[in-house]
Amino acid sequence: MDLTPEPNKDEGAMGDLSFDPKGRLDAEDGLLLTRLAHLVEAVDPVPSDLVERSLFAITLAGLEADLMEAVYLDTPLAGVRGAAAAARADDTAPAEAKTITFTHDSLTVMISLSPSAGGRVRIDGWAAPAAGLDVELHRPGADVVTAASDEDGRFAFDSVERGRASLVVRRTDGGGGAVSTPVIEL
């Protein structure tokens, strides 16, 4: 991109004097902004899977489940890592279990992701306060899989294909409404 400024013709040497603050953008402004857009993307790139995760989240929006929030803490020492970081770390360190916590009002769901046979993922989950829960696993282009929690609020999916996924949690007694996790990368 050529950022060569046009010479300040008649207005003298000062670029700011030649610039009408209420005026329209000139060609050089356009070049500058175009270059700036490239820099913004280079310095803080949009995560590569964010669009696809958003698109899948939109398809799940019709489930009328309230979105839970993932809990992110600064220090990984707490054993709680961001969903996105966990997903990225998964590529390089597949042997390590990852734990993600989601909250919504009074309900907290923790899931632990660990490797399973054939490059798949095992999900162990725990919900508090403990109650009978139906947990649905939604994945793009796949049938919904449901697991029931035990009385302590524990549930598991033994062997799940990697990729984008979201959990929808409903109380078996029908109370409280459904909640869903953000779309994460397994």
Partner: peptide, 24 residues
């Protein structure tokens, strides 16, 4: 949306969820 959220000082992990929830 990503850069709008990041400009508010949101860490990358949380920013991904904010963008996602905005579309929802």
């Amino acid at each position: 949306l990503w850069h709008t959220v990041r400009a508010q000082g949101v860490e990358p992990d949380a920013a991904e969820d904010v963008v996602q929830s905005t579309w929802v």
